[in-house]
Amino acid sequence: MSRFSELLDDFFYRPDEDVSGLQDFAAGSDGGLPAAPEEVPEEYLAFHLEGECYAVPIRGVREISKVPPLTEIPRAEPQLLGVMNLRGELLPVYDVKVRLRLAERAPLVAGPDAPAPPRSARILVLRTETGPAGVWVDGVVGVVKLKPSMLEAPPPGMRVGDRDCVVGMGRRGPMLYILLDAEQALAP
């Protein structure tokens, strides 16, 4: 993409962005706003955590990385597994299993005593409000398209502690995806 078109990309109206201000502005102009969204499917990235299938909106995923050597941060919160170096960029890597009550404690994956990571494990680099963050997943399933009609509210039993890390469920054919709110799951 050229620099211009990147800029353009940021400026253009997209239905998933809040542009109320701009819309007010456009009132009266013959602005080319798209018609009300119909059943526009959204793309999710599905992945495994302790055998369960989770998914996050793909626009929130910056990239998927194999697991590099992680460096633990002394005295950090247990959820922070360590930092990784991704092409010169320093990224924190988090565990979400404890928060989702899938595990008792965060796995030992950083430092000299950590075993080699499982072959299928990956780090999802997510965009969060406070910057990019890595999330350890056991394996990546792939991209699934979910229409609004395929989404359901999370079952009451899924509420985890005092946080709603699960925003809903996606059902597509026989598959059930637990939709994760990454922002909540990674909150300190």
């Binding site: 353009l8 400026f11 253009f12 109206y13 701009l22 502005f25 456009a26 102009s29 013959d30 602005g31 080319g32 706003l33």
Partner: peptide
């Protein structure tokens, strides 16, 4: 200014 792409394009 500012205006939306649509108006200019038309």
């Amino acid at each position: 200014k500012p205006f939306l792409p649509g108006s200019l394009e038309a």
